[in-house]
Design a protein around this nucleic acid. Structure first.
Lengths: 197, 197
DNA sequence: ATAGCCATGTAACCAGTTACATGATTGA
DNA sequence: TCAATCATGTAACTGGTTACATGGCTAT
C-alpha cells in the first residue's frame, strides 16, 4: 500500500493533524493521490502502532482537541526504503470510458448529460492547476530541486485534465454531430520520438 | 461497481467464456478497464446468480471444458439502466508520482531505474496503440457510430500513454541534468479554449 | 435556521490482489 | 524439459467506500 507512504511524505514535509492531512490531500498532492478522512484516521492509527509516526494531544478551547502527528526516525527510514522499491503499474479503470464504448446502447441525451458534467469538472480542475502554475513559472530558473519535482507533478495534472477535456469534446462532437476526428492522434514528428527509445 | 457492467458490455458485443473475457480485457477494452481472471470468474458467478447472464457448458476433448456465457434480456436492461446513471469520478492514485514528489529523499539512481522501467512500458503501449489506430484511419469517413466510439477510447489511450512519456522524460531531465521545463504547460491559445466553458 | 468548517472516529460492506490449486496440450 | 496457452476456480487478505455518530463555532 502507498497511502501509508503518501502520509509519511506529507508528514515529512510538515507535521499536522489527521484533519490537516485530509485538507492537504485535497490540494497539492491531490493531483495524484486521494484519500478520504476515514481512511486517513485509520491509517494514522496503524502508522502510530508501527511507530512510524508519533503524536501529541493538543487540547484546544474553542476548537476540538487534536492529535499533532510527526514522522519518526523509523518512519523516515521506512519511507526511504519504499522509495527504492520497484513501483507497480497502477491500473486505469474508467466507468465513463466503458459507457462511451457502449454509447450506441444508451440514450444519447442521458449520456450527453454525463459527458457535460465531467467536462465541467475537468475544466474547473484545469483552471485551478493553470492558476497554480504561475507560482512555479514566476520563479524561472530559481526553482529548487524540490520545487522542480513538484512542478513536474503539477504538469502531469495539467496534461491529465487537458486530455480528458479533449476526449470529452471529441465525444460530444460525435454524439451531437456524428463527426469523428480524422487526423491521427500523433503526427510523424512525434512518432520519431517514440521510436528513439 | 462497474466490473459487472464492463462484462455485460463485452458479452453484449460477443458471448464467450471467462477465459475469453480475460483475454479481451487485456486487449481492446484494456485501454480503460482491467480485470484479473480471478475477479472475472467470481463476477460471472454473481452475474449468473442474478440472471443477468446465462451459460451453457461446452465439453471439449483436447481442451478443458468451458462455460459459454451470453447476456440475458434482464442483463441487457440492467446495462441500459446503468448507462443512464450518473458516473462517479474515478480517483487517480499514482505511487510513482508520490515518489517523484519526494524524489529529494530518495537515492537518485534507484529512482531513475524505476522511471526508465515505466518509460519503456509506456512507450511499448503507445506503439501498440498507434498500431491499432491505422485500423480506424484507413476506413476514413466510413466509420460506423460504434467504430467511432471505439476509436475515441483508443485516442484516449494514446493520449494517456503520451502524457506519461512526456512526464517521465521531463523527470529524467530533472534528475540527470537538473533542468526544469521553462514553458508553461498550456499556451494562451489553448487557454482560451478552457475559458470558453 | 442552515450550512460550512473544525475535529475525530467505528462498522459494515464492496472491490481488488495475492497465493494456492489443478491439469492437459503444444511448441522451442 | 521448460514455458506458454487453454480453462477453471477457492481462500485469505488488503484497500477503499458508505453509512453512521458526535458536537461546538462562525458566518449568512
Amino acid at each position: 500500500m502507498s497511502l501509508k507512504h503518501a502520509i509519511l511524505v506529507l508528514l515529512e514535509k510538515k507535521p499536522g493533524s489527521g484533519y490537516d492531512l485530509s485538507q492537504r490531500f485535497k490540494r497539492g498532492i491531490g493531483y495524484f493521490w486521494n484519500a478520504s478522512h476515514q481512511q486517513i484516521y485509520q491509517e494514522l492509527k496503524k502508522l502510530a502502532d508501527a511507530r512510524w509516526v508519533e503524536f501529541e494531544l493538543q487540547t484546544q478551547s474553542e476548537r476540538p482537541d487534536k492529535k499533532h502527528y510527526r514522522i519518526s526516525a523509523a518512519g523516515r527510514s521506512a519511507l526511504k526504503a519504499w522509495l527504492q522499491e520497484p513501483t507497480k503499474h497502477e491500473r486505469l479503470n474508467s466507468a465513463l470510458l466503458v459507457k462511451l464504448y457502449a454509447a450506441h446502447l444508451a440514450d444519447p441525451q442521458a449520456l450527453l448529460l454525463q459527458l457535460d458534467e465531467r467536462l465541467a469538472a475537468h475544466r474547473a480542475k484545469l483552471e485551478e492547476y493553470v492558476g497554480h502554475e504561475s507560482f512555479y513559472l514566476d520563479r524561472g530558473d530559481a526553482l529548487s530541486q524540490k520545487q522542480a519535482q513538484r512542478y513536474l507533478t503539477l504538469r502531469h495534472g495539467i496534461r491529465y485534465e487537458w486530455n480528458w477535456i479533449e476526449m470529452l469534446e471529441e465525444s460530444r462532437t460525435l454524439l451531437t454531430q456524428g463527426r469523428t476526428p480524422q487526423r491521427p492522434m500523433l503526427e510523424r514528428l512525434t512518432r520519431r520520438k517514440i521510436e528513439s527509445k
